[in-house]
């Protein structure tokens, strides 16, 4: 897909996120919007997947370790055709398949149930170990949050991925700098992250997480790295694409009202019009 096409996909994903959350009346817009360009690039360009066969053994896997950003994943899956788009409006509602956090038993295309922070990278490593054992060339992508860097298990998993030379693992850090209680560095300083991941023997790539070309280049580079895992530290803006949500910790876990949703969608449609 071309850069402009991926930008359009990311815009559609952002619109989906807003409309889903308005209907659901709860959920996490900030960290979903910050990850939209990353997820669009992965699902519409990078990953080897087949929406008609969600359990295809040769597929690339995706683990949303920051599971509260489920809406960004659900939108990408619906836009890819894993399930009808109408399902998006059932988010977080009783009897519907789209759970508040990803559930691999309920939703086609979800490779791992996640949401309790810190656990996704370990699962991704397990899938990657299995791929190596089976001589398969699939790759495993794990999207991590920066607030999640405070979880000890992340670093256990970081150590293990390097120890087992899991070059089929690519982690992407959605580095938006905010978490529920405020700026990530004020809640629990995890800096310097680049140096930490390097010290854990990972190949580190730093990019602007909203620059599609930079993301494409980063994924291409990650593919060439052998003998160790790669992390793409993607600098992002929480709430990206909706002016009043951008860089506001308060939009971590609050859904927009109907009016706020309309305002957000208006902005996003304008952006889409500018993309042509």
């Amino acid at each position: 897909m071309t850069t402009i096409e991926l930008k359009r996909v990311a815009n559609v994903i952002r619109q989906d996120i807003i409309s889903m959350l308005v209907t659901a009346k709860s959920g996490h817009p900030g960290g979903s919007l910050s990850a939209a360009d990353i997820v669009a690039t992965l699902f519409f360009n990078e990953m080897r997947i087949n929406p008609k066969d969600p359990r295809w053994e040769e597929r690339d896997r995706f683990v949303l370790s920051k599971g509260h950003a489920a809406p960004v994943l659900y939108s990408a899956l619906a836009e890819k055709g894993y399930f009808p788009k109408e399902e998006l409006q059932g988010l977080r509602q009783t009897g519907h398949m789209l759970q508040g956090h990803p559930d691999m038993k309920k939703t086609p295309g979800v490779d791992m149930s996640t949401g309790s922070l810190g656990q996704g990278l370990s699962a991704a490593n397990g899938m990657a170990l299995a791929g190596k054992l089976d001589g398969k060339d699939y790759r495993v992508f794990a999207l991590l949050g920066d607030g999640e860097m405070a979880e000890g298990q992340i670093w256990e998993a970081a150590m293990a991925a390097a120890h087992y030379k899991l070059d089929n693992v690519t982690a992407i850090l959605d580095f938006n700098g905010l978490q529920i209680d405020g700026a990530t560095d004020s809640v629990m300083c995890s800096a310097p992250l680049t140096e930490k991941w390097r010290a854990f023997c990972w190949h580190v790539i730093e990019v602007d997480g909203h620059d599609i070309d930079a993301l494409l280049a980063a994924f291409a580079e990650a593919k060439t790295v052998k003998g160790r895992p790669t992390i793409i530290i993607a600098k992002t803006v929480k709430g990206k694409g909706v002016s009043f949500m951008e860089d506001q910790a308060g939009w971590h876990g609050n859904a927009p009202s109907v009016e706020q949703g309309e305002q957000a969608l208006k902005e996003l449609r304008e952006e889409a019009a500018n993309l042509g």
């Binding site: 053994e57 896997r61 683990v63 691999m104 490779d111 791992m112 810190g118 656990q119 990278l121 370990s122 699962a123 991704a124 490593n125 397990g126 899938m127 990657a128 170990l129 299995a130 791929g131 054992l133 089976d134 000890g152 298990q153 256990e156 998993a157 150590m159 293990a160 120890h163």
Partner: peptide, 19 residues
């Protein structure tokens, strides 16, 4: 290694991939 959370989490991933 002495990292039980990751031990169980990695086992989950291995199982998700058919092991």
């Amino acid at each position: 290694g002495i990292a039980e959370a990751n031990l169980l989490g990695t086992a989950a991933g291995l199982a998700a991939a058919g092991k």
